[in-house]
Write a protein that binds this DNA or RNA. Structure first.
Lengths: 209, 209
DNA sequence: AGCTAATAAATGAACGTTCATTCATTTTCA
DNA sequence: TGAAAATGAATGAACGTTCATTTATTAGCT
C-alpha cells in the first residue's frame, strides 16, 4: 500500500469534518468578520465540541489561512483552466470570468480582501503575491491591446486596478431575482469596460471612430 | 514639547478628550478592525484609564456609531458645499471631489464600509440611507447627461455603482510619493469614467426612453 | 469473516487571559 | 463649592486553547 497520506474511500469522516469546519468558518467570517467569530460558534455550526476543532486545525488563524490561500489558488487555477480554451476576445473573457467567479464565490472573495489584515505576515505576503499575479493577467491583456492600437489607456496598471475594483464591487449589491440577470450584469459591465479602454480621442463631444 | 497646542479657555478639556478618543478609535478601527480593538487599547492611546472612556461614550458601539454617522454627514456636507460653487462639468466635479475626499479621509472611508456589519440595525439603516443619497448624486448627473445625449449608459444606477466602486478602490493602492501625483490619478480616472459613459463605440441595446 | 491492536476523532472539563463595563472614590479646575 | 473627569479596583462573561479520557473507525493478522 501507499503511505498513510492517501486515505481509502471508507475513511472519509475526518475529512468531512474538516470540510464542514471550513464551510462554517467561511460563512461566519464573511458574515461577522474573523475577529468577531468564536471557535465555539464554529463548533456549534459543525455540531461538535470546541476542542474537537483542534483535531483538524492547529489554531483559528490556520482556518483563516487555509480559506484565503485556497481561494487564491483556486481563483488562479480557474482562470488558467479557461485562459486558452475559448476563442472569445481576451478582455471579454476576463471580465465575464471575473464577474461570474466573484458572484459564485462571494464569501471567499469577501473574506480574501476583508481579512487580509488578520493574516500573519508570511501568509499575507503569499496572498498578496497571488493577487498581483491575478492583476498581471488583466494588465497583460490591456498591454497587448495597447500595442496594436485596439485599446488606449494611459496607464495599464492603474486601469487594471480601476477595472478590477469596479468588477469586484458587484457582489456587494447584486442579488439574484433583483431585476437583473447575471448575464445582463456581465453585459452592462463589459460595455463600460470596453468603452473605458477603447481608443476614441477625448470624450465629451468628439465623433466616434 | 509637552501638551497639545491650544486649549482655548481650558473649559474644553472634556471635549478634547472625547475628540482624542474619536481619533484614536478611528485609527485603531481602520487598522485592526472594530472587533479586534479593545477599549484598553484606545484608553492607552488617549493616555487615560479604560473607565475614563465611559465619561465620554456610553459604549464601544457608540464610538463606532459616532465615527460612521459623522463621516457620512460630513461627506454629504462637503459635497453640498461644492455642488453649486464651480463651473466645472458636473461629472468631472464629482469624480475629482470623490477621489480627493476619499484620499484625504482614508480611515473614515475604510471604516464606513468595512464596519457596516458591526453596526446595530438602526444605525446601519441610517448610514445606508446616507450612502444611497450620495449615490443618487451621481445617478442624477448621469441621468441629466443621458437625457440630452451627452452620455450613453444602459442603466444609470448600475453605472453609478460601477463608477463609485472604481473610485473608492483608489485608497487601497495609492500612496503618496509612489510615482503618481494625486492630480495625475484624478486625470487618469476621470478619462476612464468619461469614456465609459460617453456615447459611441459599443451599441448594445435600444435607447432607454 | 472475525478479532485485535492502533490510531483518529470527539468529549467534557478546565486553564489562564482578556474583554466591556461598573462604581465608589479621588482629583482637577472653573 | 460643585460638577466634570479620571482613577483603581472589581465584575461576570467570553475568549482560544489544552488535555486526560472516552468513543469510533480502521489495518493487520488469522
Amino acid at each position: 500500500m501507499a503511505t498513510a497520506a492517501a486515505r481509502p474511500a471508507s475513511r472519509a469522516k475526518g475529512l468531512e469534518t474538516a470540510e464542514r469546519v471550513r464551510k462554517a468558518a467561511l460563512r461566519r467570517f464573511a458574515q461577522a468578520g474573523y475577529a468577531a467569530v468564536s471557535m465555539r460558534e464554529i463548533a456549534t455550526d459543525v455540531g461538535v465540541r470546541p476542542g474537537a476543532l483542534y483535531n483538524h486545525f492547529p489554531t483559528k488563524q490556520d482556518i483563516l489561512k487555509d480559506l484565503m490561500l485556497t481561494h487564491m489558488a483556486e481563483l488562479l487555477g480557474a482562470w488558467a483552466a479557461l485562459e486558452n480554451s475559448s476563442s472569445m476576445d481576451p478582455l471579454e473573457r476576463f471580465v465575464r470570468f471575473h464577474i461570474r467567479y466573484h458572484l459564485e464565490r462571494a464569501d471567499e472573495v469577501f473574506i480574501s480582501y476583508m481579512e487580509l489584515r488578520n493574516l500573519e505576515p508570511d501568509n499575507f505576503e503569499t496572498v498578496e503575491t497571488e493577487r498581483r499575479r491575478y492583476e498581471a493577467v488583466l494588465t497583460s491583456i490591456l498591454e497587448d491591446g495597447l500595442a496594436d492600437g485596439r485599446y488606449a489607456v494611459d496607464d495599464p496598471k492603474v486601469a487594471t486596478r480601476a477595472i478590477i475594483a469596479m468588477l469586484t464591487g458587484i457582489p456587494t449589491w447584486y442579488r439574484e431575482g433583483g431585476g437583473l440577470s447575471e448575464k445582463e450584469v456581465e453585459d452592462l459591465y463589459l460595455t463600460m469596460v470596453q468603452k473605458a479602454v477603447a481608443p476614441g480621442s477625448k470624450p465629451s463631444r468628439t465623433e466616434t471612430g
